[in-house]
Computed example of a mutant assay.
Amino acid sequence: MDVSYDKELKIAELAVQRAALLTKKVLGIVNKGTLSKSDLSPVTIADFGAQALLISAIHHNFPKDKFIGEESAEALRSDPALLDSVWSLVSSTKLDDTESEGLLSSLASPEEMLDVINRGTESDASKGRVWVLDPIDGTATFLRGEQYAVCLALLEDGQEKVGVLGCPNLSFEGPFSQTIPGRRRKVHERQVDGDGFGRMVSAVLGRGVFIRHMSRGSLLPKEKIEPQDGIADDGINCIDSTICKAMDLEKHRKIAERVGATWPGTEMWSTQLRYVAMAIADCDLMIRVPKSSAWRAQIWDHAGGVLIFKESGGRVTDLDGAELNFTVGRRLEVNRGLIAARQGMHHVILDAVKEILGSDGKAAS
């Protein structure tokens, strides 16, 4: 068995790039076909279309692999107009480079598209090869033309092997390689790539992290993101969202204050974009303390991003210091909350979390 994952990485990168093109198309459409899911989060024709393109490309190349995706096709089956809109997008979105497009797949009909979308309804990632995908992480900010991510990750027996995040609006000044040590590469929710197709960040376990511009055609040259453990000249910078209602933001503030970090620091809604921001050295720390003890994260909000941050020199655990467990279903059922920080400071953050949660009468263990 090929353990290099070279083919998996290339197909995943091309699939994400093609799906990202579809989402960019939808950004120019006035009516984005927005629905509301049971948890009141929005879903658009871009979510359905991107999931169809991602799964079809991977299934074409790796037909025995399974999928866990955020969306299902049931809403499309009950709404012919919505189905037509999604099919129009999917059937017309192709890479300009014939060779690259030929490595993926083309769906033959709306019915086949529905079946492909529903391949993502698996619920067990504990054994074998399972691709986890979020067609649009950050749909709310996508609708505002801000930052979002097209996410794809390969798990093998529950372990992340490949992670690819397409960030179609990601923009920062200057070439990536010209960053000055000790200086931050600033990203912002509203600092978007209005002329191009943003950046793609990808990783394979044990082989580091790479970043490239996305395009309409073949994959462009990539640059390596060197692992980092130091802190920038302006100290520890958090990344958070002050409009998130599920998290205990007051505890986030207290923990940051305890370790001398800037909070909220960089504000970003998409969780996967936060991993990217930390990997490219804009931020050092992400804390997630849920208000409810029953709250658990969806695995597609973290698979891929966790690998990318780890390969860039970070560590990710839950509030008790345990590694994230992707083997127990569509949610991180055995992990409460999250700490993502650079390797050299993670233990300090973990100690601060235990102190703050303990002093507030809610021990971390």
Score class of each variant (00 low, 15 high):
residue 176 F to G: 01
residue 169 N to C: 14
residue 146 E to Y: 15
residue 127 K to V: 15
residue 181 P to T: 05
residue 144 R to Q: 15
residue 142 F to E: 10
residue 150 V to E: 07
residue 165 L to S: 10
residue 153 A to M: 05
residue 170 L to N: 07
residue 129 R to G: 00
residue 131 W to M: 00
residue 158 G to V: 12
residue 149 A to P: 04
residue 174 G to H: 08
residue 172 F to E: 04
residue 175 P to C: 00
residue 173 E to V: 12
residue 181 P to L: 02
residue 178 Q to S: 10
residue 124 D to P: 08
residue 124 D to C: 01
residue 155 L to C: 10
residue 136 I to M: 03
residue 148 Y to M: 07
residue 161 K to W: 05
residue 127 K to H: 15
residue 164 V to S: 04
residue 157 D to Y: 10
residue 129 R to M: 01
residue 173 E to Q: 09
residue 151 C to W: 02
residue 149 A to T: 15
residue 132 V to E: 02
residue 154 L to P: 07
residue 139 T to E: 13
residue 144 R to F: 13
residue 187 V to E: 03
residue 159 Q to S: 13
residue 150 V to H: 09
residue 179 T to L: 11
residue 172 F to Y: 15
residue 175 P to Y: 05
residue 126 S to Y: 12
residue 138 G to C: 07
residue 184 R to D: 01
residue 170 L to R: 07
residue 136 I to P: 03
residue 182 G to Y: 11
residue 181 P to I: 05
residue 187 V to W: 00
residue 181 P to Y: 06
residue 138 G to T: 00
residue 135 P to F: 00
residue 125 A to P: 10
residue 129 R to E: 09
residue 150 V to K: 10
residue 159 Q to P: 05
residue 176 F to I: 01
residue 182 G to S: 04
residue 181 P to C: 07
residue 134 D to V: 01
residue 188 H to S: 14
residue 150 V to C: 14
residue 128 G to D: 03
residue 176 F to P: 11
residue 159 Q to G: 08
residue 165 L to Y: 11
residue 170 L to S: 07
residue 162 V to Q: 00
residue 134 D to A: 03
residue 186 K to F: 11
residue 175 P to H: 10
residue 169 N to A: 13
residue 186 K to D: 04
residue 130 V to L: 01
residue 179 T to Y: 05
residue 173 E to R: 12
residue 178 Q to T: 07
residue 156 E to P: 08
residue 140 A to M: 14
residue 139 T to Q: 13
residue 160 E to L: 10
residue 148 Y to P: 06
residue 173 E to A: 12
residue 172 F to A: 04
residue 142 F to W: 08
residue 188 H to V: 06
residue 154 L to H: 05
residue 139 T to D: 12
residue 187 V to C: 05
residue 159 Q to I: 14
residue 171 S to T: 06
